[in-house]
Amino acid sequence: MTDAAADRVADSPALSTSRGRLIGILIPTAWLLLFFAIPFLFVIKISLSEAAYSVPPVSDFLIWQDGWPVLQATWANFALILDDPLYLQALLGSLRIAAISTLLTLLIGYPMAYAIARAEPGMRTPLLLLVILPFWTSFLIRVYAWSTLLQDQGMINSALMWLGVIDDPMRMLNTEFAVQLGIVYSYLPFMILPLYATLERLDGSLLEAAADLGARPATTFWRVTLPLSLPGMAAGCLLVFIPAAGEFVIPELLGGPDTLMIGKIMWQEFFNNRDWPVASALATILLLLLIVPILLLDRTQSRAEQG
């Protein structure tokens, strides 16, 4: 009773009737359960099935034998993935590339977010807009733009050769470097926005207090600014790392054949080899690897809201 009463106090009037509450929670819950959560069960199911020459190209999970249902589950797809160094390399490679790119994004994004947060109040919104603006133009086309820039005859090589820095074009396209560059470029706004949010909320008098107590600017940064912006850094890094680990477009357009990333392999298994069970098993493994980071992200976000 007391809990219910406390909840009612915390309610907002517009949707506070029990019917309003029900609608507000039920519709999104039903939608997300059906189209986001439950589908994973089907992926897991397919990952335990065998491939078959049929439409769809999987054998039935459940077959009827002498009037009895028999479960036709198999671990073969997972065994295949764990046995084949290609898949393992792709898995580890994805995590490594995503981690390095996340670190680079943080190194580039932090000073930018800090500069915007320290800019004059009237300038902050326009500067933030400049960060977000590229995000509103096609992601695909921007990644493609890098592929033209990084080509052997592309602008960067031409410029470096004209400057005399190099004599022959550097191979940049179709390398892991290009993939990392593409990830940093595409996900930079996701790093800057949460960082900016925490840095902007940082109480300026704390920095003044540190200076007042004798801390030089660098000390103030390490002892006060950086620790207090940790939540923003955590959110930003997770927002970059998680989707980057499963990225398909960037390794496909900028990476070479030896740049193995799990998203690309999965795509190939699914579309080129039509091996749905292996693709599903790969998706399942990736999902398992990412569950902890996703829960962490959810936690940092709800904590940011409370604090």
Binding site: I25, L32, P243, G246, E247, L286, P293, I294
Partner: peptide, 15 residues
């Protein structure tokens, strides 16, 4: 509820 709303933001598109 909150996890189901956070996860789609970052879930790799292939999954």
């Amino acid at each position: 509820f909150s996890t189901m709303l956070t996860a789609p933001l970052v879930m790799p598109e292939v999954i």
